[in-house]
Design a protein around this nucleic acid. Structure first.
Lengths: 222, 222
DNA sequence: ATACGAATTACTCAGTTGTTTAATTTTTTG
DNA sequence: CAAAAAATTAAACAACTGAGTAATTCGTAT
């Protein structure tokens, strides 16, 4: 009965001998479950089962389902946001007018790295794609909070590299860019269907290269 | 008790005096509900309430929730597929080697028209965006069934217009195209967030024009 | 050891889900 | 008009949902 009203999130020391905090293990499991079934399709019991944990422990460590979802999104979303800011900073440090292609790469690279970083990273990419097609209020708020700040800086950088476009046009094309890479990252495994497996042959590094060429040319159009 | 085991879908004549078949009214309501909340988030009771009918009538006319979902997707998906085929046929009738921009327009136009055709059309566009980010087996199968046939024809047409690209590259860029327009159609209303409302000022016709220029340039890249 | 608080468990709870049933009304048919 | 079929309704079903509770175990500092 002595459970704290707001169960403490980070107790004095890690509770697990192997160093994996139970709270993080639950977040990992939730990430997979949310990615596979979406917010509404995910079951708290299944998340607990994936984490190998008693269902009540989710509430104990991570709060309600909604709170759990937000933690999952913010955890890796923040990493992507930081990397994007850092990449752009590095670019602007070299030159006040970076090349278009470099700006595009700076924005895409963090997502790409995450996708390569094991099944958890791939799951988060799928989760993001879902997040961007859900009109619910929570998804909308999270998107704005996590992704908009970096996006605005990149729009400004693109506007410098594309002086023939108005700011409205640059903003619009930035949205095109986001749609393209999200769709591709999410759909990569299934792209083969449309092409009878031909795309699968292309190597992953070459794939990012293709995407960058496509986007750079599109951004530069007219 | 004399209800048919397989309730007949289209009885002799329309049951409603005003001509609106009850089965279609349920499909309309389901379309809105699925678009707003996704498959898992949609509630059969809410669909019934939207249609103004008894919940049991959904099962009577349209079967289970899964069957209802497939009917919603197929109903308008088939229309888009037909329009895309017809547009491409018309183009190829004029010239065996249509201009790139015309191919792009032929593919996008049906979606655009649907979006403009009232709230039901806009809802279906949102529904499609969701369909393309759901990894569940049903969504995957529906996507292939409804959208792949036309896409394959357009890939072939694009390959002719882009002789400097391999077929694998054309297939990949076609996937980029799909991602871009789906994301934009779905996100249009919310695009303003990213741009402080600047995009909203752009008129809708001009928007399709921008998208076509972006995509045509991207497809032509290198 | 013992006492104390945190960690974990099994269990319960009220509400909701999709679906079905049996009864009733409406429509069509003979 | 009467009988049969179809359409519609209210109610109930069993399964599942997220969340909460009280009890128990565990680790540690006294």
């Amino acid at each position: 009965m002595a459970r704290p009203a707001e169960p403490r999130r980070k107790p004095g020391r890690p509770k697990e001998a192997d160093g994996t905090d139970l709270r993080d293990r639950i977040l990992d499991a939730a990430e997979l479950e949310f990615a596979d079934h979406g917010y509404n399709g995910a079951r708290m019991r299944d998340i607990a089962a994936r984490a190998g944990v008693n269902p009540a422990l989710i509430g104990y460590y991570n709060g309600s389902k909604g709170a759990l979802y937000e933690q999952v999104i913010r955890r890796k979303g923040a990493g992507i946001d930081i990397a994007r800011h850092a990449n752009l900073d590095a670019l602007l440090a070299q030159s006040p007018t970076p090349a278009l292609r470099d700006i595009v790469r700076a924005y895409l690279q963090p997502q790409w790295d995450m996708k390569e970083r094991g099944p958890g990273g791939a799951a988060f990419v799928r989760l993001q794609a879902r997040l961007h097609s859900e009109p619910e209020a929570r998804a909308l708020r999270l998107r704005r909070e996590v992704y908009d700040p970096a996006a605005k800086r990149y729009i400004a950088a693109l506007a410098v590299a594309l002086p023939h476009l108005t700011l409205e046009e640059v903003s619009l094309r930035m949205a095109f860019l986001v749609g393209t890479y999200l769709f591709m990252l999410n759909d990569l495994g299934r792209l083969g269907d449309l092409t009878d497996g031909r795309v699968a042959e292309v190597e992953k590094d070459a794939l990012l290269d293709h995407l960058e060429r496509f986007l750079a040319a599109g951004l530069r159009a007219d």
